[in-house]
Design a binder for these strands. Structure first.
Length: 554
RNA sequence: GCCCCCGUAGCUCAACCGGACAGAGCGGCGGACUUCUAAUCCGCGGGUUGCAGGUUCGAGUCCUGCCGGGGGCGCCA
């Protein structure tokens, strides 16, 4: 159980006890929120007495006192009451130090909690059209979704990461036509690119590879058939690239879900029939419409165009039917860029139409990224159809700064990503600041082992009473709770702020407390346990949570 | 026109979903390395939280209205 959970439980018990003994009037027990506070007030605090004043019809200070007096004895924390009615907790130094043993025992599982209760959640993210390399803008989506999946797993959800492959529809058709044109052109035939085709140089590269592997065999086929074959070949190449690029960013998926499969396995028809049964489908001007307004949507939507082609929205309905009804996820998180916000109310309407509680679907919206270099915006050359790809930025700055920088802003904030700054090894770049803390610990442990110290169980943790030692440990102790907050609010940016704060506390400890001191062997042993535990936390935070590297040497 | 997001220190942003005196980093100035790595640390300044009301014990946070910026309102995705 986390620190905040433990303290909240103590307060709840005290409330119940105080009520039973008549020190407080009876009222329904509220949910207790305990949050970190400033050092001058202690370590954790709750304003519950202030909130209860009205309902209990008592002065907040008296309520606070009543709670404090009925707190069960605890070796974890002491409590005190301050005006105008806060209940503050101060962790006991011995308890704080003793938690090192818990970290040693649990290892990287130490941060795990059970708030997810094993519920099955799907995080669907990136899902960019598989028509070419991933644009750098997609990196934010990838990092957000991936980090949230990591956090949700840690707090006790059963997580599935999914990429929705838009391998049906008009964009795919254009992709195939474009590829066919490039392929034919390479073989000397004067084939025009389709209107609004994919003009990027990479299309020529795909075509070249197909020529290398298959020669001109597709030119002999009927055009339609050739386009279909090239579409499939091209799609596979794109997916292969996407997987590699995302893997280089530290992002992996459990499932790549094919849009086309929704049509091939009859899901689409089934959902259409279902909506028809409910009277939510009608025909107008040759198109098939979804009566979204009948289920709370802002306006009706076209499902099947008058051309007979289903739109993306039709697929999305079938897709979400598959997620909730067929696969039965308890909770689904779709990660979308903010320019898709207009789609949110539509999807909520879809949920109602399908008879699924709309709260089971969360749309995580995030703001856009603009790429800069030395403060100047990097212009994309639209004419050539070339874009700044994730791969290019990966090659230039590496995955660590990308991941960290894209998590330093709240989801609603825009991000200026400066290529020059990302690799700059300066104070302005927090990536190295955090990694350096890990490296410093590695250095200490290297030196200690070289000098014959053992890093293990024999250190006496009760010696760790220095304010800098305590402050560092207390910061560590907040991580499990922070992960819960991040999961509840889907706000992973708190993690990078935390990482910086943890590094700051370590650097302060480093300044104040020398670890290896032959004059004080017992203290040295204790501090070696401390820094080894903190190193584990840094590695866990950097590698398992933020998906970065934790270097031994810098 | 309607809907959504944002407006906080010179700059970039936080503020744990209504709590205590609004915090970091960067930039500016001045200091600290014969030490377990100075990619670090210490000190100094800096604010009418866009404006005006409202809700209450208490508002950067919630409500209303304005101002300013971005996004969305398609048989595109």
């Amino acid at each position: 159980m986390t620190v905040r959970q433990e303290l909240a439980k103590l307060v709840e018990r005290a409330l119940r006890e105080a009520q039973e003994q008549g020190a407080l009037p009876s009222f329904p027990l509220p949910s207790v929120e305990v949050t970190p506070t400033k050092p001058e007030f202690g370590d954790y605090s709750t304003s519950l007495p202030l909130q209860l004043a009205r309902m209990a019809r008592m002065a907040p200070m008296r309520i606070a006192e009543a709670i404090r007096e009925h707190l069960p004895p605890s070796d974890m924390a002491t409590a005190e009451v301050t005006a105008p009615g806060f209940l503050n907790f101060r962790l006991k130094p011995q308890w704080v130090a003793s938690q090192i043993a818990a970290i040693e025992k649990a290892g990287r599982d130490w941060t795990r909690s059970q708030v997810g209760e094993g519920r099955r959640v799907q995080v669907e993210f990136v899902s960019a059209n598989p028509t070419g390399p991933l644009h750098f803008g997609g990196a934010r989506n990838a990092v957000l979704g991936d980090t949230m999946a990591r956090v949700l797993d840690i707090v006790g959800y059963q997580v599935q990461r999914e990429y929705y492959v838009n391998d049906a529809g008009t964009q795919m058709r254009k992709f195939g036509e474009s590829l066919y044109a490039r392929y034919a052109q390479l073989l000397g035939r004067d084939e025009p690119m389709p209107e609004d085709g994919y003009m990027g140089q990479y299309m020529v590269e795909y075509a070249r590879r197909i020529v290398e592997e298959h020669g001109d065999t597709f030119l002999a086929l009927p055009r339609e058939e050739a386009v279909q074959k090239l579409t499939d070949l091209g799609l596979n190449m794109v997916l292969e690239e996407l997987k590699q690029d995302l893997a280089a960013l530290g992002v992996r998926f459990d499932n790549w879900f094919s849009e086309r499969s929704l049509y091939e396995d009859g899901t689409f028809e089934r959902v259409l029939a279902l909506l028809r049964e409910k009277g939510l489908i009608y025909e107008k001007e040759g198109a098939l419409w979804f009566a979204a307004t009948q289920v709370g949507g802002p306006k009706d939507e076209v499902l099947v165009r008058s051309s007979g082609e289903p739109g993306y929205f039709a697929s999305d309905i079938a897709y979400h039917y598959n997620k909730f009804v067929i696969r039965g996820f308890d909770w689904v998180i779709d990660v979308w860029a903010v320019d898709h916000q207009g789609h949110v109310p539509r999807m909520k309407a879809v949920m109602k139409a399908l008879g699924v509680d709309p709260d089971r679907l969360t749309i995580l919206l995030y703001n856009l990224v603009t790429l800069k270099r030395h403060g100047e915006e990097v212009k994309l050359s639209k004419r050539a159809g070339d874009i700044i790809t994730l791969r290019e930025v990966l090659d230039e700055v590496g995955p660590d700064p990308i991941r960290f920088m894209l998590l330093t802003r709240s989801n609603t904030a825009k991000i200026d990503f400066d290529l020059a700054l990302a690799v700059e090894q300066s104070q302005e770049n927090p990536v190295y600041y955090v990694q350096y803390a890990h490296t410093r610990i590695a250095g200490i442990l290297r030196k200690a082992r070289a000098e014959g110290w053992t890093v293990g169980e024999e250190g006496d943790l009760s010696l760790l009473t220095h304010p800098s030692e305590q402050a560092l440990l207390k910061k560590v102790l907040d991580l499990p709770d922070l992960l819960i907050t991040v999961a509840e609010r889907l706000e992973p940016h708190h993690l990078t702020y935390y990482a910086q704060e943890l590094a700051t506390h370590f650097h302060a400890f480093y300044r104040d407390c020398r670890v290896i001191d032959p004059e004080a062997p017992e203290l040295t042993q204790a501090r070696l346990r401390l820094v080894a535990a903190v190193k584990l936390i840094f590695a866990h935070l950097l590698e398992d949570i933020l998906g970065m590297t934790a270097p031994e040497v810098m």
